[in-house]
Amino acid sequence: MDRREVARARARMQAAVREFLTRREFDEVETPCLVPEPAMEPHIDAFRAPFVPEGGGAARPLWLHSSPEYAMKRLLAEGFPRIFQLARVFRNGEVSDTHNPEFTLLEMYRAHTDYRGIMEDLEETVAACARAVTGGTRISVGGRPLELAPPFERLTAQEAFQTRAGVDLAACDGRADRLRAALRERGLGVAGDGDSFDDLYFRVFLEVVEPTLGLGRPTYLVDWPAPMAALSRLKPGDPRVAERFELYAGGLELANGFSELTDAAEQRRRLMEEQGLRARLGRPVYPLDERFLAALPRMPEAGGVALGLDRLLMLLVGARTIDEVLLFPAREFLAPR
C-alpha cells in the first residue's frame, strides 16, 4: 500500500471530520495528553510518565491519557454545548493487527441529547469521511459490499445474543452464575466458576456475536447489560440495560459511546469498583479524578462517543492491518530483536 497515498487519505478524512462537525456547530478543543488521573477501565493500562521538577524534588506521577473523556466532560460542565477532538491517545501493551499503543480517536460530545442523538451525528460523520476518501459511501470489504450511508442498523445486545447464541441476556439479570448456566446449556465453552459477568459476556461475544455484525452496512450494538454500563447511564424505565453502544463495520469495532452518566455518587461507586477489579487483576490502581467527579453534577444530559480513526481509515482504504495506515507503526520498533 502506497504510504504517501494513505497519508493523503488520512488528511482528507480528518479534514472531512473538521468540516462536517464545524458545520454542525461543534467546537474543536484540545485537552492535555499528560494527566494526573488516567481513565480507570479495568483492562487498559496507561503509560506512566512522571514529572520530575527541573530544580529537584520528588517526582509527581503523571500518565499519558488513554482517552480525553474526563477532561472533555469537564468542558461540557463549563457550558461547552458541542465539542470534538482529534486526540492522540496511548494504551500500554496493545499491539496487534488492529491495535497500536499510540493512535488517534475522534472524541465528540453533544449536550441536551442522548445516545440516539450522538449515534446520528456519528453515522453522518462516517459517511462524510467515506465520501472524502473514496468519493462515495459504498465500499468493498473482503469482496463484499458495505454501504456506509445512514441510517446504520441498530441491534440490542439482547437481540444479538438471542439470535446468534441462543442466550437470553435479560433472564440472566446481570448475574454471572445465570449467564454461565445459560452458556453451558447452549454448549458454549466457558472457563472456571470465578469468571465475572463481563468475562463470560465477552468470551461468547467475540467468538459468536461479533463476526456477524456490520456486514452489508454498519451495526450499532445498543442497550448493553447494566453491569457493563461503564460511564453510561442506565435506561430510564429499564435499569437492566445501559444506554451504551458500540459500532461495527466490515468486521471491525470502530466506536464506543454512551448516554453520559451525570450522577457523581454513582460514578464514584463504579470507579471504586473498577479500582478493586484492577487490584484483583494485578494491574496498577489509579487515583480517582476528583475534578471530574466534582464537575459531573453541573454537566447537562449528553451523548458522547469515541471513534477509532485509524480503524476507520483501514476500512476506507482496504488495509488488512493498522500498520498499513500508520507512517511509523509501533511494531517497527517493538519487534523482537
Rank of each mutant, 00 (worst) to 15 (best):
D2Q: 07
R8L: 14
R10E: 05
R23E: 14
E25H: 11
E25W: 07
F26G: 04
D27P: 00
T31Y: 10
C33A: 11
M40I: 09
P42I: 15
H43N: 03
A46S: 12
A49L: 14
A49G: 12
P50F: 06
P50E: 13
P50L: 10
P61W: 08
L64P: 01
H65L: 14
K73E: 05
L75F: 12
A77I: 09
A77R: 00
E78I: 12
R88G: 02
M108N: 09
Y109F: 13
R116N: 13
E120T: 10
E124P: 03
A127M: 14
A130T: 09
A132W: 12
V133F: 10
I139Y: 04
V141C: 07
F152Y: 01
E153K: 14
R154E: 09
A157C: 14
A160H: 03
Q162E: 12
G166L: 12
V167Y: 13
A170H: 04
C172M: 00
C172K: 02
R175L: 08
R180D: 02
L183G: 01
G187H: 09
L188R: 11
G192L: 09
D198C: 07
D199S: 15
R203H: 08
R203V: 14
F205A: 05
E207K: 13
V208I: 12
E210C: 11
P211I: 06
P211A: 09
P218S: 13
A229R: 04
L231S: 11
L231V: 14
E246L: 02
E246F: 08
Y248K: 05
G257L: 04
L261E: 06
A264M: 01
A265K: 02
A265C: 09
A265T: 11
Q267E: 11
R268Q: 00
L271H: 15
R291A: 15
R298K: 04
M299C: 04
R311P: 00
L312A: 06
M314I: 00
V317C: 03
G318R: 01
A319T: 01
T321P: 06
D323H: 01
D323P: 02
F328G: 10
A330Q: 03
F333L: 15
L334T: 10
L334Y: 08
